[in-house]
Design a protein around this nucleic acid. Structure first.
Lengths: 232, 232
DNA sequence: TTTTGCGATTGACATTTATCAATCGTCGAG
DNA sequence: CTCGACGATTGATAAATGTCAATCGCAAAA
């Protein structure tokens, strides 16, 4: 069962350039677990005992304060989460819960840290990964502080389209209420934003998104790679 | 002139554990420059040619989109900025300008990257630094998404007090308009927020901040280390 | 098939925040 | 010492966003 995932994990950017013996060492302590939907995997404030890898399903990262909560991100296969806390031996800043039935590989943080100290290929991969996460977070801050909720939604639609090779019709892969939280608005506001976007050439019915007039949408959204390109 | 700064840079977390010969190699290509206030050091979108170190003065990191701009952070001596772009050879996501007369050391990104590939002590320091930056950015996102502007200001006051060993009176070290932008509000809103905070035991007149009733302020601000502690 | 639960939507309204315009106050240049 | 520039403040108003309550619609469970 575990071995079925080894190859996939091995091909992740994070583990690709690690030496064989170190990869085996990390994976010896790993275990795979399958969780039903809506299971809390980690709670913000807890100490970071494991680096998690999502193999199947999807995981929501969220944060809470005085009763409110907000979605920070959605993690899909195959990728890791809470690397920064693991590396710094610091408490998690976010909670995580499964959104659907998910298979998660858990690597003891201690093992990850000790390999990190030994394997410079791994250390470099960790750096690249963290730099990406940091830059993604800065982009998120920029969209929150510089755009209205309508503009954020418009750019989200363009991003999702781009992630699917620029198709004009696709299905949303998260609930609208989660999307609303991710984009920093309420579910009610999201409903209204969807309607308000229609004049700019986007129609959303249920999960189905159709971009009917891309030039109009882009004229409104004014996307820029410095905020909206996940790769840069 | 340059040599005067070597020791200080050497003691930064980022450079402390680097091998001597590598430190010397990086610093050979470095140069120090002194800038007047309000000079643009880098522009978002430019390619990352230098890792910058602030030795004196202060530097604002900000981002723009369609004519608006927002302050992302203020960098004070002695620390580096735009490490992530340097490491990833990616374009800057933020612009930077001096706020006052400032002395900046500039290290060619290429040199930093090549030492990074050779010196595992440095690589590890880079990881720790990036993990810190990433976590700081997540905390900023949390305060933006979970709190009102009044709550953000209240917590800012408590943070600044904590950074000064918990004193009850201190001077703001940035302009109110910059602070407003940093906290995600307008300057006008900041003026009103300052007044609105008075009933909770904080008085701000000019630069002078006085916490007159810390229990009340804390009851209102509800600070948590998972957002407000820069160290965790 | 019917029931039931829950996310999505809608309308009415409240709150928060931004915008615009004017004025104040202070500090530095002349 | 006076003037002017500019950041800070204030008031009036508008826009954006959130809250509350009710309803809708669909899909899973009975």
């Amino acid at each position: 069962m575990k071995s079925a995932y080894l190859a996939e994990i091995r091909h992740l950017d994070l583990f690709r350039s690690m030496r064989d013996e170190n990869f085996e060492a990390v994976m010896r302590g790993a275990y795979v677990q399958s969780f039903p939907p809506l299971v809390d995997l980690i709670r913000e404030g807890d100490s970071s005992d494991f680096l998690h890898v999502v193999m199947d399903g999807s995981v929501e990262l969220f944060a809470t304060w005085t009763g409110k909560d907000t979605t920070i991100g959605i993690v899909r296969p195959v990728s890791t989460f809470i690397l920064a806390a693991t590396i710094r031996s610091a408490p998690y800043l976010m909670s995580a819960r499964t959104l659907e039935r998910s298979r998660i590989v858990m690597l003891p943080s201690e093992d990850v840290r000790s390999i990190f100290d030994e394997d410079s290929g791994f250390a470099r991969a960790v750096v690249r990964e963290l730099a990406s996460c940091y830059r993604a977070s800065i982009k998120h801050t920029k969209t929150l502080k510089l755009r209205t909720s309508l503009e954020r939604l418009a750019n989200y639609v363009l991003q999702e389209s781009a992630a699917r090779n620029g198709v004009d019709a696709f299905l949303l892969d998260i609930e609208k209420r989660k999307l609303a939280s991710l984009l920093g608005m309420t579910a009610e506001n999201m409903s209204r934003a969807i309607k308000a976007l229609a004049p700019y050439g986007v129609h959303i019915e249920g999960n189905r998104v159709v971009i009917e007039n891309r030039p109009d949408l882009e004229a409104f959204a004014k996307p820029t790679p410095l905020i909206d390109d996940p790769a840069s």
